[in-house]
C-alpha cells in the first residue's frame, strides 16, 4: 500500500522520502541527502551527496562507501533540525551504530525502525523504545514460529559444539558485519578467551568494533596463519558466501554450522547444506515485533521487509490496530 498523499513521508522510486527534511531514509539510489539507519549494504548505498548516520557507524560506512563521503555523525537521542523537520536517531539494537529514525514536522511524528531487535547484544547498544504517531516497522521474521533465545544461551550451544570436536576445525558461517562480531562478543561474555580465526571479510570489520570498545576474544585472519599450522580444534568464522567455496578447501573435514534466525526451521538448515544451525538473529522475533509496535503508541503502523502482509493483517485483525503493508520496499 502506498502512503496517503500529503504525509510526512512518501514513497519515491529512490525510497522513503521526507519532503519537510528534504531527505531520504536508506535510499536505494543516489540522492542529495540520505539518513542512514545502519551500514548494511541494503540500507547504505554509495553516491549520495550527504549522509547522516550514528557516529559509531562512521568507520564502517567510510570503509564501505568510500573514505571521502560527506558524512554527518550524530549521537543517539540528539535532536537535529533538518529543513523544516526535527530529526532524531535512536538505538535500534541491530548492529553497531544502528538507529531508528524519528521525524517530526507539522505537528506529526513518524518513526522508521530500520532493522532492529529486542534481545540483548554485547556488541551494540540496546533498542530504545520511542513513541510516534506513525510507526514503520520491519517484519523480517514476522511469523509466530520465530522466538529467540538469549545470545548467551546460543553462545553456550556454540561453545559445546566447538569443544566437542577437538580434532576438526569448526567452521561457523555468519554474516560478516554484525552477526560475526556479535558472536565473538557473546562468546567473550561467557568467558571464551581463546583466539578465533576469521575469514578476510569478517576481519575487515574488526577494527571498527575494537575502536568502539566492544569486548572481544583475540582474533586473527586465516590468511595470516603460517603454512602448515594445524587447524584442528580451531573455531573459524566466515561469511555464508565462503561455504563450499575454494576458500573452504584448506580445512580438513570441518564441522560446519550456520548462525541465523532462519535456522529455527529445520528445512531451512538442510536446504543450505549445513550440519548444524544455531538460531541467533539481529532482527526482532515475533514477540519483539508485537511489543515494539505496541510500545510505539502509534495510531498507524506500516510494515515492510519480510512477512509484511501477515504481520499487518495480524495487527489489524487480532490487535485491532490500524496497520498496512508498505509497498515498494525491498527485501531485507
Amino acid at each position: 500500500m502506498a502512503l496517503p498523499a500529503g504525509s510526512l513521508l512518501e514513497l519515491t522510486p529512490q525510497g522513503l522520502y521526507c519532503p519537510a527534511a528534504g531527505a531520504w531514509i536508506d535510499p536505494q539510489q543516489p540522492v542529495p541527502r540520505a539518513l542512514i539507519t545502519h551500514a548494511h549494504a541494503d540500507h547504505a548505498r554509495p553516491g549520495c551527496g550527504e549522509y547522516w548516520a550514528i557516529g559509531a557507524s562512521e568507520t564502517i560506512l567510510r570503509q564501505r562507501l568510500g573514505a571521502t563521503i560527506n558524512l554527518i555523525p550524530v549521537d543517539y537521542g540528539a535532536l537535529h533540525r533538518i529543513g523544516d523537520a526535527r530529526v532524531s536517531f535512536h538505538s535500534a539494537g541491530h548492529v553497531l551504530g544502528s538507529a531508528q529514525i524519528r521525524l517530526e514536522a507539522g505537528g506529526e511524528s513518524w518513526l522508521v525502525s530500520g532493522d532492529y531487535k529486542r534481545c540483548a547484544d554485547p556488541s551494540c547498544t540496546p533498542f530504545a523504545p520511542v513513541t510516534a504517531d506513525v510507526f514503520i516497522t520491519e517484519a523480517t521474521f514476522g511469523l509466530p514460529i520465530y522466538r529467540w533465545q538469549s545470545g548467551a544461551t546460543v553462545a553456550g550451544e556454540i561453545l559445546s559444539w566447538w569443544q566437542a570436536a577437538p580434532e576438526r576445525p569448526s567452521l561457523l558461517f555468519a554474516y560478516a558485519f554484525g552477526k560475526a562480531q556479535r558472536l565473538l562478543a557473546e562468546l567473550a561474555a561467557i568467558g571464551v578467551a581463546e583466539e578465533v580465526l576469521l575469514h578476510g571479510a569478517v576481519e575487515a570489520l574488526m577494527p571498527a568494533y575494537r575502536e568502539a570498545g566492544v569486548v572481544l576474544p583475540p582474533t586473527r585472519a586465516v590468511s595470516a596463519l603460517a603454512k602448515g599450522e594445524s587447524l584442528a580444534g580451531r573455531l573459524v568464522i566466515a561469511p555464508p558466501s565462503a561455504h563450499r567455496s575454494v576458500w573452504m578447501k584448506r580445512f580438513k573435514q570441518p564441522q560446519t554450522a550456520f548462525v541465523s534466525g532462519w535456522m529455527a526451521v529445520r528445512g531451512a538448515r538442510r536446504r543450505r547444506g549445513y550440519e548444524r544451525g544455531f538460531v541467533l538473529s539481529d532482527h526482532a522475533d515475533w514477540p519483539g515485533l508485537i511489543r515494539s509496535v505496541k510500545q510505539s503508541g502509534a495510531r498507524q503502523v506500516y510494515v515492510t521487509h519480510g512477512n509484511s502482509d501477515g504481520l499487518a493483517r495480524y495487527l489489524r485483525e487480532v490487535e485491532g490496530l490500524s496497520a498496512a503493508p508498505l509497498a515498494g520496499q525491498g527485501g531485507p
Partner: peptide, 25 residues
C-alpha cells in the same frame, strides 16, 4: 488465527514442527 497457522506451515513445511514451534510461542 487459522490463516496465520497456514502461513507458518508454508514456511516450515511440516505440521508437527510448525505446532512444536508455535506451542512454545
Amino acid at each position: 488465527p487459522e490463516w496465520l497457522f497456514d502461513d507458518c506451515y508454508a514456511q516450515v513445511g511440516d505440521s508437527a514442527e510448525t505446532i512444536a514451534l508455535l506451542w512454545r510461542q
